[in-house]
Design a protein around this nucleic acid. Structure first.
Lengths: 120, 120
DNA sequence: GCGCTGATTTGAAGACTGTCAAGGTAGAAG
DNA sequence: CTTCTACCTTGACAGTCTTCAAATCAGCGC
């Protein structure tokens, strides 16, 4: 795993309630918006999608850099943002570092956006 | 409805597939990331939550500005970002402007983040 | 018409973000 | 130990975003 000083995945505040059911608290909004912000870049979304849909649920960085017209450091930067948002996790195996998505985090976001039953 | 030049809600590219099932195309990532970026700010998330959870499914701007330590123009700016992302819609009734969420847009995002069945 | 209230637009300042080149680390192989 | 590959970090720059004050627009009532 990369060295990387701080960057614990943030707590899942109020994990299961929908955004649409009742107003978010300031703290909940802070945590959720940090994750949505991480998804708010097309490169990061594609990276996440590539990792999630890759065979075995994980992908090596070398498999991610191809397919982007971006430098290695830039891909590395985006992976770090996804990691610090608690959306993915990296593991070193030999020379390569493999990333996988943390499904629980995706589920939390998906749930938060689920429209309230009364609204449909 | 506010004047506002361009800003049609963007097309729902590939509306129902999950991010985790197969890699996003560049275009899909562009559309989705624009919406996630709009959610990537705690103020906007709270605004969306306030509107969605408000009685009747809609809220007047005057009801939104209270509860934030922000100027009117700033709230207006965030509402515009949400509107241009296709997440909310505004309607003028007399002196007041009422905003409501577009549930379809939320559903699209929620679906995109739904973890693949095989992953759980 | 004039003024008042609610909401947006404009313009500007400061903070933040995406990107790359250059340099640094970690493990494997000679 | 030296070198090579894979990946990360640092430093810097251009572009974008958040915020506010000031000005503007839209409707209502006098």
């Amino acid at each position: 795993m990369p060295k990387q000083a701080a960057a614990e995945p943030p707590e899942l505040a109020g994990c299961c309630s929908a955004l649409t059911a009742e107003p978010l608290t300031t703290d909940e909004a802070e945590v959720l918006s940090q994750r949505f912000k991480a998804l708010g870049d097309p490169v990061r979304l594609r990276l996440l999608s590539l990792i999630a849909s890759h065979e075995g649920g994980e992908a090596c960085v070398c498999e991610l850099t191809t397919g982007f017209d971006l430098s290695g450091p830039t891909i590395s930067h985006h992976l770090r943002v996804l990691r610090e948002a608690g959306l993915i996790d990296g593991q070193r195996r030999g020379t390569w570092i493999y990333y996988r998505v943390l499904p629980e985090a995706l589920r939390t976001l998906s749930q938060a956006l689920r429209p309230a039953a009364a609204m449909i």
